[in-house]
């Protein structure tokens, strides 16, 4: 899933300067699951905007809406009536969601209320961790299902740097495991350390020609 975080309120408030009617749009998929831009977060942000507006004596009409997936045109189209009545949209979708809303309603300014951070998974309640960099050339089959491209802070492909801390933590952060120690442990468990001894060529950074575009054949 795509993981995102709410932007600081002051940054959002500054974006909205000069607008009087704003539609806050949440998304019912990834950002709902990671507690960043679902129905609940839309309600909280809208309330904070109204409160701040009334405290500052500023006229601000805040409306709320949630679409199931903001990255899909048809679903975003459902907002058309609500959008007509406002002069700005505050999207609580991921970066793809914000851009879809902006593309569908080209005449309206659309602002991001989230910082989209990574493709990841929940580690436990309330904690999400990065798992994939969408490199376009997945090598998980050599590495015991642990991604060295993104879980190693340096994206190294041939084993750990000399920076691994005592106990197998990463050089940059004692809270994070060294991906290569994890890979070692898992491959060892599977009796496949031979995979770690292989030499892996430099990565092909054109595996996905950015910006990525895929045409499916059906």
């Amino acid at each position: 899933m795509v993981v995102a975080e709410r932007k600081p309120f002051d940054e959002i408030w500054a974006m909205l300067e000069g607008y009087e009617r704003v539609l806050v749009v949440g998304c019912g998929t990834c950002v709902t699951i990671c507690w960043a831009g679902g129905e609940k977060e839309v309600g909280l942000l809208a309330a904070q905007l109204r409160l701040t507006a009334s405290r500052e004596g500023r006229k601000l009409d805040v409306r709320e809406a949630v679409v199931e997936r903001q990255c899909e045109r048809e679903m975003v189209e459902e907002l058309r009536d609500a959008v007509e009545e406002v002069d700005a949209i505050l999207s609580m979708g991921c970066g793809a969601g914000v851009q879809m809303v902006a593309e569908v309603f080209e005449e309206k300014p659309v602002f991001p209320a989230l910082n989209t951070t990574f493709i990841g998974a929940p580690e436990r309640e309330g904690v999400w961790v990065e798992r994939c960099a969408a490199c376009g050339d997945c090598m998980l089959y050599w590495t015991g299902g642990i991604c060295p491209v993104i879980r190693c802070a340096k994206g190294l492909l041939n084993g750990p740097c000399g920076g691994t801390r005592r106990g197998g933590k990463c050089e940059i952060d004692p809270e994070k495991d060294c991906a290569w120690v994890l890979i070692y442990q898992r491959l060892k468990k599977q009796g496949r350390l031979d995979l770690m001894e292989r030499y892996y060529e430099p990565k092909n950074y054109r595996a996905v020609k950015r910006p990525g575009r895929i045409v499916a054949m059906r």
Partner: peptide
């Protein structure tokens, strides 16, 4: 002096 040493040695061998 790395700890754990084994993953380091595999890299070193490469």
């Amino acid at each position: 002096s790395a700890d754990p040493i084994e993953p380091q040695l595999i890299k070193f061998k490469k």
